[in-house]
Design a binder for these strands. Structure first.
Length: 309
DNA sequence: AATAGATACAACCGCCATTCC
DNA sequence: TGGAATGGCGGTTGTATCTAT
């Protein structure tokens, strides 16, 4: 297994490609295209297997390859996407034009990995224990050592916490029972009936941080999770008491920060609306306390995801 | 200057999914 | 319809280059 029939030939050459081989491959592909890779070596006069030719073309020779250092934006996108989909390098690469899965994989395995393992954090919480730092590193190391293939692995950390600033925000209002009631112009879906969010607003600090828990039935994140999920700032992710997304809620009348309990956050169509309307910054919380936030433009992330969301 | 260790990255390997006959 | 061929992907390895001593 692994070797295709074309690779079993004894004359097949392995190892680094020479400039002459590159030239032959480029010349052939640009004039004939690459209908069947197994035919390419013979027709191009190369003593390589078709698989090797394909790899060389895709990862190095094709004209739309973008070489050079990753930009901070690309780096951020890679981190966010990796947090969302794990080691699905081809999927991640599809969101970075000109970058290959191999390149991103190599980049992640060297530079980003090294960077993440440094416990640097723009923390404002002087009380953060070394234990939580260890938890963070443990999680990150576990994440890097294992093979997260779906969103579940994102939550292998016990009770991960996220901050998510959003602007603009979901249309709605706080009702008399201290619930956040989302306005439903978009409520065609019957499953959206119970979109109320319990508000745990500190009574003595109205207008400050509000915690609220969704009463929407769970499991609705699934469609979203297939493609993207909550981007996490991997450098600052720590375990907390709750899974929380902090939402910077702004409307015409108030400027509140609100917190959404992601454990119960759900509803696919609602999610779509949510994410489409989302723009802001990410960070983390620890025991309901902000540890850090980092700048990350959500709209950039969202716009790069499949429109099927 | 020599050398060992670290790093970056190109390429291969093994497997799975899909296509084709 | 089943098996072979092929494409594609993620993991791993090999090697050139860089850096520290």
């Amino acid at each position: 297994m692994g070797h295709h029939s074309c690779c079993n030939q004894q004359k097949v050459k392995r190892g680094l490609w020479s400039p002459e081989e590159d030239e032959k491959l480029i010349k052939y592909i640009t004039t004939h295209g690459y209908g069947c890779w197994s035919e390419v070596p013979e027709k191009a006069g190369l003593q390589r297997c078709g698989k090797s030719c394909r790899l060389r073309w895709i990862n190095y020779l094709r004209p739309d390859i973008r070489r050079g250092r990753f930009t901070p934006e690309e780096e951020k996108l890679i981190i966010n996407l990796h947090a969302a989909v794990g080691n699905r390098w081809a999927h991640i690469a599809s969101h970075l034009p000109g970058r290959t899965d191999n390149e991103i994989k190599n980049y992640w395995n060297s530079w980003i990995k090294k960077k993440i393992r440094k416990p640097s954090r723009a923390t404002t919480n002087s009380n953060q224990s070394s234990q939580s730092q260890n938890q963070q590193l443990e999680f990150l190391n576990q994440d890097l050592a294992t093979k997260p293939q779906n969103q579940e692995t994102l939550f292998t950390i016990p009770n991960p916490s996220f901050i998510f600033d959003i602007n603009p925000i979901l249309p709605g209002h706080v009702n008399a029972n201290n619930f956040y009631q989302i306005d439903h112009n978009f409520q065609e879906n019957p499953t959206l009936n119970s979109e109320t969010w319990h508000i745990n607003q500190p009574q003595d600090h109205p207008g400050e941080m509000i915690q609220f828990t969704s009463s929407i039935n769970s499991s609705c994140l699934t469609p979203l999770l297939e493609n993207i999920m909550v981007p996490i700032d991997m450098q600052s992710c720590v375990g907390g008491e709750h899974e929380i997304i902090a939402v910077d809620h702004r409307n015409d009348h108030q400027m509140n920060d609100q917190w959404i309990d992601t454990q119960q956050y759900s509803c696919s169509s609602y999610n779509n609306f949510f994410w489409e309307q989302t723009e802001g910054t990410f960070g983390t919380t620890h025991h309901d306390e902000i540890i850090s936030t980092t700048s990350s433009n959500m709209r950039d992330v969202i716009s790069s995801f499949p429109s099927s969301l």
